[in-house]
Design a protein around this nucleic acid. Structure first.
Length: 487
DNA sequence: TCTGGGGTCCTCCGCCAA
DNA sequence: TCTGTTGGCGGAGGACCC
């Protein structure tokens, strides 16, 4: 792939995606600061609405810090199933432009317009796309257009919020020169600090320093890459259907775990979740990885590569447990993770291990106290409420037999506060408080953001045509409802 | 202020075999 | 047979991204 003479690489970035979805779904939050993230004591911000950003709240910030900066914001837990559904609608619109669509996350993607036979008027294509997204989802996205991924991404960043920026090929270098080095993808805090110590602050200064100096400062691959980026040289193609190379799950505990037995139990549970994800993706892998973050935030990983790929629960469990044996956990553990890497495209069964697992399962069936019995998870870490268990988290969708659809504003001391409103409500809804055990209140499916039948609405949002959630979408967030947008 | 979760890629080191 | 070199692989950790 050569450097393009036309700005036919499109980068779409939805604006404050998670927060925007919540504002669209909850009329009382429109125009107000909204922060989506973990609401536990160790939660961090996933997305802040623009109203919250004004107060200095940004993603990756500790939730506790955000609350101090912006005490009046609505703090909500993420509803990934909803975000995934909306993302599917957006990705579907992108796929109409070109066969080459490379999703980077739920809210971001590159599109190769040239591969879609679009050479003329990329600006018009981008503007129409933005209008379609707005009509189909009610949300705004920003579009960057350029001759390379690097510039398209920088363009969409400049376009935010709710805009479009096109960078004409040939103007890259002068455009990039005054920008901070952090603008370049791959330059994070550590690299930026390295460069700063060498007196390099801007992209132009990276170019001036020369490739040899960059390689000396940052190492061969990274140095050459950063230097090339600074020159505006980026020949990375848009790649559709990237296969993932590893699958992992991890949990941070509200309170550090100190009991070795408990730690072992959690590793087993993580292995279970990991294998479930692995299997639902139809993959298997050779390397089992255990991740441990200790009380002092030091993080270590231990891994073991097996002779053959596996998706066998017993094998992953045993390997993870073995790796755990070799880790010093005195002082406490704040995070545990289990992953499988070195994924194969096919499941090459380890027949011996499979047989062993079946034996173990049979044994477990006869002994309810064994590994397969549903373990009690202490409240402070509960993530998957069991059947009959009532647990209300802020942002959660609920339905009341008398008052209808609403969402949890907050809960505590045996009470749960619900605001009854729907995405289409003209005005903020009424707030009512119930006992957490109130049987008239039930968790419910999310409501659609844009009602089918509204003028100009494309058909994608109708339940029948909404694509199913991506595989592996369980993400450990309760029952992964495959339900459509309409309840 | 006390730092999530799920990934990718790179580097370095030690081991082993050719 | 011994030694040095090289390359691949496994393992650990760091940096980065959204």
């Amino acid at each position: 792939m050569t450097v393009r003479s036309a700005p036919t690489i499109l980068h779409l970035d939805m604006d404050a995606f998670f927060a925007a979805v919540e504002q669209a779904a909850k009329p009382s939050l429109r125009g107000k600061p909204v922060v989506v993230g973990g609401v536990g004591p160790r939660g961090v911000v996933a997305t802040a609405s623009y109203e919250a950003r004004v107060h200095g709240v940004h993603s990756a910030m500790a939730m506790a810090h955000a609350r101090r900066l912006c005490p009046n914001a609505a703090y909500l837990v993420p509803r990934f199933a909803v975000y995934r559904q909306i993302s599917d609608v957006v990705m579907e619109l992108l796929s109409r432009l070109s066969p080459l669509v490379e999703p980077l996350s739920l809210d971001e993607a590159f599109v190769d317009l040239e591969a879609g036979g679009i050479a003329d008027d990329p600006r018009g294509v981008g503007e129409r796309l933005r209008a379609e997204i707005k009509a189909a989802t009610g949300l705004t996205g920003s579009v960057g257009l350029a001759g390379s991924k690097l510039l398209a991404k920088i363009a969409s960043e400049q376009a935010k919020p709710d805009g479009l920026v096109l960078i004409e090929p040939g103007t890259e270098r002068e455009l990039l020169a005054p920008m901070q080095v952090r603008t370049l993808p791959g330059v994070g805090p550590a690299t930026a600090e390295h460069l700063r110590r060498a007196g390099i602050l801007t992209v132009g200064e990276v170019v001036e320093a020369g490739e040899a100096e960059l390689v000396r400062l940052l190492g061969k691959a990274h140095g050459a890459h950063v230097h090339g980026m600074a020159l505006g040289v980026d020949e990375r193609p848009v790649v559709a259907d990237r296969e993932s190379k590893s699958v992992s799950v991890e949990d941070t505990f509200d309170v550090d775990l100190t009991d070795r037995v408990r730690v072992r139990l959690e590793v087993d549970r993580l292995a279970d979740r990991c294998v479930r994800r692995l299997r639902s993706a139809g993959r298997s892998g050779r390397t089992v990885v255990l991740k441990v973050r200790r009380y002092d935030f030091t993080t270590l990983t231990r891994s073991e590569t097996l002779r053959a790929p596996t998706d066998d629960l017993a094998v992953v469990r045993e390997t993870a447990a073995r790796l755990l044996e070799a880790v010093d956990i005195t002082g406490g553990v704040r995070l545990l993770g289990v992953g499988v890497a070195g994924l194969a495209d096919f499941t090459q069964e380890d027949l011996f291990a499979q047989a062993a697992e079946r034996d173990e399962e049979n044994a477990a069936d006869e002994d309810p106290g064994a590994s397969r019995a549903a373990p009690e998870r202490p409240a402070e870490e509960a993530r998957e409420p069991g059947p009959g268990e009532r647990r209300w988290v802020p942002g959660q969708d609920v339905r009341h037999t008398e008052y209808g659809a609403g969402w949890v504003q907050g809960s505590g001391v045996g009470r749960v506060t619900v605001r009854f409103e729907e995405p289409g409500s003209a005005a903020p809804g009424r707030v009512r408080t119930f006992a957490v055990t109130d049987t008239e209140l039930e968790p419910s499916e999310p409501l659609p953001l844009v009602l089918p039948g509204l003028p100009g609405l494309p058909r994608q949002l109708s339940p029948a045509s909404v694509p199913k959630s991506r595989s592996g979408g369980g993400s450990g967030k309760g029952p992964d409802s495959e339900g459509p947008l309409m309840p």
